[in-house]
């Protein structure tokens, strides 16, 4: 194909690849992509069919966390030596632990400790909170709890606005692209540690809603058609492990809370990797079902997990 017309001194695309080999390669590449998709699809179904949850119970929240994670194989199954781990609790509100507005500090601390014990190279804890981060980190007790470990590998950090990255969400139905926090995207493992509570617009906030803490931009706009958008986010961000804090659940006045009359102590911690199954189980704590909650239904429709708890293996439930 070299015809001597290119005098720019730089090779043209056509110089490097003739048409035929380009077409061949393109064809190979796309078939491979399709093949990979075909392989991935049954994997999804497989995951859904064999979803496993584990429930830890008791007033000793540390033991409840250890039991819950132990039920699905222990932390060593999810975290390997040297990995950079992000633990993402709910630290959204300027609200003390007993109100159930944030993940319980003992739950967060225990998970961080377990990751460190499993040999994690660094455990980063953060949230993009709704109230002032300095207040939520302090009032929630989470900053003090994690820093109390006095391990330089465990860090609680505030969001740094220089660390937002825009990403396309290939499987999304509504949210074509959005900004995500770099630390969450680049971590080797993301552990999602939500608290189960009532929510004004999504009825409940559980694990999928908690992922709003790793996204940026004008998050208020997520609320327009929020159910599909939450499912879209979950189609893009796949935590290695989900630990749902239901040690106490806020039944009304959420997500901020502030009225102890609305808080019920349930003494449960649920661990799993299937966000739809975890959230469906979470709904039962509020005498609801996954099918009652819009975003859980949408996530189930996208094949992100098992909404029917009769098909989920629940250990310790």
């Amino acid at each position: 194909m070299r015809d001597g017309k290119n005098r720019s001194g730089y090779p043209l695309f056509s110089d490097l690849l003739d048409r035929r080999s380009f077409l061949t390669r393109a064809l190979c590449a796309s078939s491979l992509t399709l093949l990979a998709g075909a392989v991935a699809l049954p994997e999804n179904l497989f995951a859904a069919a064999t979803s496993t949850l584990s429930v830890g119970k008791g007033t000793n929240y540390k033991n409840a966390v250890i039991d819950a994670i132990g039920g699905i194989g222990g932390i060593g199954k999810f975290i390997s030596g040297g990995e950079r781990v992000v633990v993402k609790p709910n630290i959204g509100w300027d609200s003390p632990p007993q109100y159930g507005g944030n993940t319980h500090p003992v739950v967060v601390k225990t998970i961080v400790e377990m990751c460190l014990d499993a040999g994690a190279g660094r455990v980063l804890v953060f949230d993009n909170p709704c109230d002032d981060a300095r207040r939520t980190y302090a009032t929630s007790g989470i900053k003090a709890a994690v820093e109390g470990l006095k391990n330089p590998k465990a860090k609680v950090e505030y969001i740094d606005d220089n660390k937002w990255l825009t990403r396309r969400l290939p499987r999304a139905k509504k949210l074509a692209e959005w900004t995500f926090y770099r630390e969450a995207l680049e971590a080797d493992k993301l552990i999602n540690v939500p608290v189960a509570k009532n929510h004004g617009s999504t009825t409940l906030t559980l694990s999928m809603k908690n992922l709003m803490g790793i996204i940026g931009s004008n998050r208020g706009q997520i609320h327009w058609g929020i159910d599909q958008k939450l499912a879209d986010i979950s189609s893009f961000i796949k935590p290695a492990l989900i630990v749902l804090d239901a040690t106490r659940v806020m039944l009304d006045g959420g997500p901020s809370g502030g009225n102890l009359g609305n808080v019920r102590v349930t003494n449960r911690v649920i661990a799993g990797i299937d966000p739809v199954a975890v959230d469906s189980y979470g709904a039962t704590l509020f005498s609801m079902k996954g099918t009652d909650i819009g975003h859980i239904v949408r996530a189930s429709e996208m094949g992100l997990g098992q909404i029917d708890l009769s098909k989920v293996r629940i250990i310790g439930g």
């Binding site: 709704c130 929510h199 004004g200 617009s201 208020g220 609320h223 327009w224 058609g225 929020i226 997500p255 901020s256």
Partner: peptide
């Protein structure tokens, strides 16, 4: 369109 951001905060 449902929104609810004000109520949430």
């Amino acid at each position: 369109v449902n929104c609810a951001v004000c109520q949430e905060h």
